[in-house]
Amino acid sequence: MKIHEFVGKKILKEYGINVPESVFIKNFPPEKGIIPSVIKSQVLVGGRMKSGGVLFADNGEEFLRNTEILLKKPIKGEFPYGVLAEEKIKINHEYYISAVLNREKRSEEWIFSEEGGIEIENSENIKKGSYEEILNTVPEKFRTFLPKLKKIFNEKDLTLLEINPVAEDTSGNLTALDCVMHVDDNALFRQPWAKKFTEDDHDFHYVELDGNIGIIGCGAGIVMATMDAVKNAGYSPANFLDIGGGADKETTLNALNLLKSKNIKITVMNIFGGITKCDVIANSILEFKEINKDIKLFIRLTGTNEEEAGIILEKNNIKNYKDLDEMINALDIFLKKEVHNND
């Protein structure tokens, strides 16, 4: 889960890292201001600077104008949570520092560069290694800065911590000018500060896509495989929706109703039940179909209690396809017929 810059900076400050003086502004007009200042849109998408999400103000008039602009302006389609106005810092030198998770080594990895700034990807002067390795190679002034970051990275359950740039001012002080933090979703139970920004309040995994065919399955792999099969047949998935293992009637109905609320008229459901009981899913489908006769469902239920599920569906004239290929074929025939009828 991505964390807004202004929240990340509060944490840096708590751990004794210098950040610029700032005000966070949620509504216009602001109660307080800072001049001269850097005004930054609080969005979670990357490339904010290049998309015009950062403006400057040297006087009150500019401050108000640019704050208002940024509060209203979506960045790459994302509306800002607010804006952060910060004092301008006199910069002598910029550094780059980050900590990430290295999947292959299955450990933390620290990255440091003497050349901070937005083009870090192109810098050849990058050092990567374990925390200890990096601590031993950084300039003297980072020897007290780095342990604070290490503490934040571990104590806040971060999967990414990036400060780009760390600015050194004319008197040699280090200040974090930007801050990117990702918190591990699995650790939110012990990170209550991050929890209040969670958008996802479903009891399943849902990702919206731009197509029109709804997808529901149990297990991330099977849902992705189903999406791919729909795409392969020439159609476009509307979403990724994984009801997980052992879904009950309520979860299943919530999933179906969510897609209905997104105005999805055709949904493909692919369940291979291990922990999930197919008869429970079949009964949920019946209950949903009863009220939503206009929504077309393509169902494939197999695995635990599939016989019971088969009987329930058959009694109610709902076809249970034997595998994914057969179901996608039926979807294809149905959609081609629909196009034909509309001609």
Partner: peptide, 17 residues
Amino acid sequence: FAGKTAPEGKTMGHAGA
């Protein structure tokens, strides 16, 4: 491979995906 249609930057159910 499953996930040809997975967009960049979105977690597809599995934390690793």
